[in-house]
Design a protein around this nucleic acid. Structure first.
Lengths: 233, 233
DNA sequence: CATAATTTTTAGTCATGGCTAAAAATTGTA
DNA sequence: TACAATTTTTAGCCATGACTAAAAATTATG
């Protein structure tokens, strides 16, 4: 009488597995299958390395892989990816809040810590932080059950002129860029007014806390905003 | 004009290297060279694996290794071991203080985290904790410069009867034992009176916060105490 | 539609760091 | 001192997960 191990998904996943799954999740934001080259490029590895790992992930039923077509997460794979992402973003917020680490440093740290923290530590962080739903960059933190809010809003590059906006999410994780944005006061929740948009994808003129700032188009593409509705009385 | 790389100790050390160095440091408490078998046993690996790593560490000038005699840390190796130990114990205290994790859980967590935290995070933890010098088990935390206090006191098994003692250090890291000791209120800094010592390495009768407790000899060997001097007026 | 360009996969290499089994050196004992 | 027991080392295996180079499949173009 052989035991049924179909669901006995004991977790032999290495950091490498987790990193690939996370990458596939992030690249597949549009729902499309992820190409091997996109995956390899995101990971900073050779294409052959990605192919190799994708085959392993497929054997573990974490992704489906139609050769030459792309990779997609299975429900199980998505679950793992979301858990890693939860770790990552919880850690970012935790480091920012309790260790006062600046938002440009927490990503790199979280990239290493996300693979080694225990369930108990995950829960303890969430509890201390009050079950937060967004991290210091405005990225949504998946719930323990794997639910994740879709961020509302649109890119600053397509925002209306003159209206009061609220910055809700910064997409880049590049430390230098984050440093720069921070020096302009451009953190999530900051009110912003778009004053001018230069043509040909030129710089944008912003007003942040009364100060005018010119911002490169490419930088503005990293900023997600909503229109602030007039505060109800 | 070739550059002098003698001190250019760029850090290609893996968690495995760090774990071995830490183990050698802890096993060599008496200053004696550490035998291969002791090292392997401590690591939970086969003897051949230890030999293998010791050879690598010797090539990196982190240990000296006289074949069939044992391993000793070089100054450089000790420096690395102390840094890892600093990470470990800072993390234990940090998790205990800021995440309210019980002292029986922090060791395992720290064993993984110690290899991945950045210098910045180490410094931030130390700052938030007020540059602490002991962890939740009473183990001394090495300073950033690699100084480490020698813990004073002696084992409870050789403490005088009837005097008021203070528990200053718990040597075991075993979660179950720590849990048990915690249930008796036996945390560092707790006052304790040794009332009786049964012969033939039998149990000890303790008084902890007014409560009598019988403690196995082997458990008492894990407890380091000092005699409390009468509080000066 | 055939060929060129691109992407993906396969094949095979390498370092890491475990392992076992056997050989060698050391230590203990008769 | 000789031989047995133990410890250490050597030799060689294996999985992981990167790599390069070459083959195969797909897509684009003349």
């Amino acid at each position: 009488m052989t035991k049924n191990y179909v669901h006995a998904t004991e977790n032999p996943l290495t950091p490498a597995h987790e990193d690939y799954l996370k990458a596939i999740y992030l690249l597949a934001a549009d729902g499309e299958p992820v190409s091997n080259s996109a995956l390899a490029q995101h990971m900073g590895f050779a294409a052959a390395s990605a192919t190799n790992m994708v085959k392993k992930l497929a054997e573990l039923h974490l992704v489906t892989h139609e050769p030459y077509r792309g990779v997609e997460l299975t429900d199980m794979g998505r679950q793992v990816a979301l858990e890693v992402l939860r770790h990552h973003r919880l850690i970012e917020l935790f480091l920012h809040e309790t260790l006062d680490m600046s938002w440009d440093r927490v990503h790199e740290e979280a990239d290493k810590l996300e693979h080694v923290i225990s369930e108990a530590m995950e829960d303890a962080m969430a509890a201390v932080l009050g079950n937060p739903t967004i991290d210091p960059h405005g990225d949504p933190i998946p719930s323990k059950e794997g639910h994740i809010d879709k961020t509302p809003g649109f890119l600053l590059t397509s925002a209306p002129i003159g209206e009061t906006l609220r910055l809700i999410r910064v997409l880049t994780q590049d430390p230098d860029r984050l440093c720069y944005l921070g020096s302009l006061g451009l953190y999530p929740d900051t009110p912003v007014i778009l004053r001018e948009r230069a043509p040909f994808n030129g710089p944008l003129l912003l007003e942040v806390q009364g100060q005018p700032h010119a911002l490169a188009f490419e930088m503005a593409e990293q900023l997600q905003v909503v229109v602030t509705e007039p505060t109800p009385a």
